[in-house]
Design a protein around this nucleic acid. Sequence first.
DNA 1: CCTGCGATGTCATTGAATGACATCACACGT
DNA 2: ACGTGTGATGTCATTCAATGACATCGCAGG
Lengths: 189, 189
Amino acid sequence: MGRWEPDAAGRLREAAMALYTEQGFERTTVAEIADRAGVTARTFFRHYADKREVLFAGSEELSRHMLDALAAAPPSATPLEAVRAALLAVAELFDGRRDFSRRRQAVIAATPELRERELHKFASLATAFDEALRERGVAPVVATLAAETGVAVFRVAFERWVTEPDEPDLAELMRATLAELAGLTASAD
Amino acid sequence: MGRWEPDAAGRLREAAMALYTEQGFERTTVAEIADRAGVTARTFFRHYADKREVLFAGSEELSRHMLDALAAAPPSATPLEAVRAALLAVAELFDGRRDFSRRRQAVIAATPELRERELHKFASLATAFDEALRERGVAPVVATLAAETGVAVFRVAFERWVTEPDEPDLAELMRATLAELAGLTASAD
DNA sequence: CCTGCGATGTCATTGAATGACATCACACGT
DNA sequence: ACGTGTGATGTCATTCAATGACATCGCAGG
């Protein structure tokens, strides 16, 4: 480690979250974030590719966790059952982080640019799901649909989790949302 | 209209498509696009909010068309049946535009920034679907799921349409994809 | 003929993002 | 203990997206 305060990336993340919350994403400059973190703007870009990415650092961990769970599902599992396992496995990652998640979602919801980036992350996740399912031998189109649907369930359940006033269980919301999905196609062709 | 060549927005769109195709999105500057269209860079931003938006001009028309079809579905239709009507209705908008769609998709696929914007457009569409379904009296969570699923079907079918070598019928692909969706949840809980 | 309005041009500015190069403390081998 | 290299950072310069303020000009309508 260098001659400076350690964990510059962490300090930058904290500073960005605080400033985005206080004054909004657009009216926060990278220079401000860097100042508060005690580094220069150039250093900000050495840790995060752009001004948005600072809020999406943990997303690879999320993907990895879900893909591990998906890979661990028995070969006999249907595509949706495998997806279900991945969804339930990832729920535990958010244990005790509901407050942080809510603050983060508030910032993202308030900023179109950040919503775009979030969508991109979810799309990457869906693509990864898609590929993983195909490697399990699932037919291409079915794999894509299962992946997209699975991500949609994640988003719906997650949104309920951060929105509802009382503290619900994320895994339980995942199960409930999956159940609603099953009901959706029951009566249509 | 003014003293200049008419349809500046159209010329800017053509110029942008051409340059994005020739040299890629990132290596194309707004100044170049404006030059080729015979206007100044400032004028570019009067017609399009940013460098990406020039490729997504027709998306409101798309939304409108689908929402009209959704509103026209009989009240007795299930959520997914209403979504199905919207999907089939919009297919005709793409009649004869497959070549253009392919070129456009090629540019978008090659550029992460453009993929993000595309995702945002789809998300807006899903939100509009969601609201329209709720206005039909569909329960909130079910409406969201139906909307997200419907958009996923659109994307899958559209991707097949621009990807497959022989010229398939988009509406037919929509039906086929919906059928696969129905099969997906048949065996899972 | 005049006048207002709309579309454009011109000018200036901010801020994101990136490349090139300098710097400096710590770790490591000798 | 003494170089020395390496990695994280600072400094400087630059490009380009995006936006605000103001001028211009010609057509439409009175």
